[in-house]
Amino acid sequence: MIELDGLTKRFGNKVAVDHLSCRVRPGMVTGFLGPNGAGKSTTMRMMLDLDNPTSGTVRIDGRHYRDLQEPLKHIGALLDAKSMHGGRSAYNNLLCLAQSNSIPASRVSHVLDTVGLSAVAKKKSKGFSLGMGQRLGIAAALLGDPEILMFDEPVNGLDPEGIHWIRNLMKTLAAEGRTIFVSSHLMSEMALTADHLIVIGQGKLLADTSMADFIHKNSRSFVRMRSPEQERLRDLLHAEGVVAVEAGNGTLEIDGEEPERLGELAGRHGIVLHELSAQRASLEEAFMQMTAGSVEYHAHSDRDGAPPPQAGPQWGEQWNQQRPGDTAGDRTTGV
């Protein structure tokens, strides 16, 4: 369990992290989401006591990081792949970490085996590819067999196989009852791995919600209609009590209606349609709106402020079924 309480970090005039309070719960993958520069890495560095908070506290299992006697057995962290001495072999890089926490040296070979680097254990780590460096960082995080694991943008620069491996690794570790805290700026990546979401923008907490809830609230589905007789169509819809919102380019967006009904309605009144399609706002879009909203707060209030009338629970289920799959792309486009 990691608890953040009013965590704030200022660099000169710039507020990198602004009164962040949340907790990271055990037994699940918590996604830490925010655009680049939102303060994710700074927050993680403060969790590890690398940066001093301007105010506020972080507690790991109820204690300040500096008071942890054997920190690697509580929390393992992958900050970035370049946190090792390149002139030292992979084995020695991990050995000196193990020794400082009185972890038996046999663990070093074990974790190298776990991440698939046994064959290059004696090689200098500066010759490693980005993916191998990432694996070495993960091996370091796993060294103390910790209850909490923290990964900062772990899939950056990895090939699809590596990404797949990390996703499954995180799920397996969480299923063992560990606390997994993983940062990303990609919503699609989080949708595949995270059970819980903490979203920040400009250092402020924007959302602290379960993944299912986030999807439920944010996957707005609507019908798009385009017609050369737009005025008539609008009047007709109005008369039928259907709320249509002008969306530019001569299109109308209608929430909470089936495309079948709208098509039949237009047909009965002889209105020509150039487009009639069911649309779904992607999670990526919802995320972008949410974080853009941290600049101008009210800009997004009409979108996700009020609960969408007909946000389908089928979306959450669909997501669960799709989870083992790898394609994040098909849900970011309209149906």
């Binding site: 055990p26 037994g27 699940m28 993958v29 057995k73 972890i103 038996p104 663990r107 085996d113 776990t114 991440v115 698939g116 046994s118 103390g144 067999d145 910790p146 209850e147 196989e161 590596g162 797949h164 491996w165 499954n168 690794l169 799920k171 397996t172 570790l173 969480a174 299923a175 063992e176 009852g177 560990r178 059970d195 379960s210 993944m211 299912a212 669960n320 989870r323 083992p324």
Partner: peptide, 30 residues
């Protein structure tokens, strides 16, 4: 308790993680 080396090793676990996750905290055998 982790299975042997990757990338083949980490098969997706049964869909039991998440909100119905195990209540017990992880305890290391080290």
């Amino acid at each position: 308790t982790m299975p042997p080396p990757p990338p083949q090793a980490y098969q997706a676990p049964p869909q039991q993680q998440g909100r119905g996750a195990p209540a017990g905290r992880y305890a290391s055998p080290i």
